[in-house]
Amino acid sequence: MRLSYNNRVSSVRGFFRSAGSAADGPRGLSVGDIVTGLEDCPVQGVEDWTSCLSHLTHTPQTGYCVPVTSLQPSWAHGRPFKRLDGTMDCCSNNSLTDLCFSYIKPQGRNSREREFACMPVRKMVTGTATCRSDADCATHTAAASVCVTPSLENQTRFIRVTHLPSPNMLFVGYPPHLQYAVGLTNFVPRFGFLHRDLPIFLETFLKYVVSLSGALAVVNSVPCFALDGQWMLNALLEATLVGVVTDRQKRELIGFFLLLAGSALLAANVALGLWMVTAR
């Protein structure tokens, strides 16, 4: 029976390195989830996952198009205060469901006056388009909308992780933490009885086989008694020293001392390796 795998999408293969990691939680990532996007960056493989996280790390925070009517008294505005790093926060209750957002006041576009609002983050960003400015919202949405941006500490990002079949995971923190907390593979088994890590196991096994075979080939080529290197050395001496050293016994004596030196060197390396292993 042929093992069949599909590598069109990426699947979370590794669980989290420790409890309470960046991807843990009731709506976090689980083994077997299919990751398809980070914000507006599509993910079709492990390389895309890494490049998208790098892009989100080195670009300004993504904004979200929210209707102007949603920014009226139906949302509770918090009093903004300045953090130690100079950024602004307006959610002073350390809520796990609310996040501070900043936007340009619709009535004060000419003055570029910024307003801050503490909003329920999941309700606000679900199904909304991403933006960089209010002009992007005018293009993507029919209703009057403004571009709101999470007001976070420096180097911290708010990232929506799209993973099927669960709702989006909302991540707030440093993007490298998300990269190191999750293991991915490009393969998803087409049959349920196949383990999703089987391609990784096979790849690792073949790497070890190639490495071991190469190491044995190198050791076997050492000019040492009872190894193939002994006959390789004899053939080399016969091919190169016939015109220089005409006496066969002298050539054999030179080969003997070279084999003796090679054997001593190999024995010394083996003894040194055993000593380093036992001394730990």
Rank of each mutant, 00 (worst) to 15 (best):
T141S: 09
A181I: 00
G127W: 04
S133T: 15
A129K: 06
R190Q: 13
S211N: 02
G63T: 00
G20R: 04
G262F: 03
G243A: 01
C118R: 00
D228K: 14
V244S: 08
L38P: 11
L272E: 14
L96V: 05
E238G: 15
A22E: 05
C137D: 05
T50W: 09
L56K: 06
G86I: 00
L198Y: 15
S151P: 12
N269M: 15
D197S: 13
E113N: 02
N269K: 12
P199E: 09
S102H: 05
R79H: 12
T185D: 14
H77N: 04
T36Q: 00
V245E: 14
W49M: 02
L178I: 11
L233S: 13
D247S: 13
M88L: 13
T162K: 09
P80T: 15
G28I: 07
M276H: 05
M1L: 12
A144D: 14
L71Y: 00
W275A: 15
Y5S: 06
S18T: 00
G192S: 06
A117D: 02
V182Y: 01
T57N: 07
A22M: 06
P60V: 01
T126I: 01
F81Y: 14
Q72H: 07
S54V: 10
N168V: 06
P120T: 04
R248T: 12
N154L: 15
R83M: 11
V244A: 11
D136K: 00
F225K: 08
A19W: 10
E113G: 04
D98S: 05
V161Q: 05
T278D: 07
A271K: 08
I200T: 14
R160W: 06
G25Y: 13
F225E: 10
L178M: 08
H77T: 07
T62Q: 08
N269T: 11
D228S: 15
A226F: 11
P67C: 03
G45Y: 04
K250I: 12
R8K: 10
T139Y: 01
V172W: 01
S211H: 04
S11I: 07
V188N: 03
L53Q: 04
D40V: 02
T126D: 10
T185Q: 13
V43W: 07
G173E: 01
V245L: 14
A279F: 12
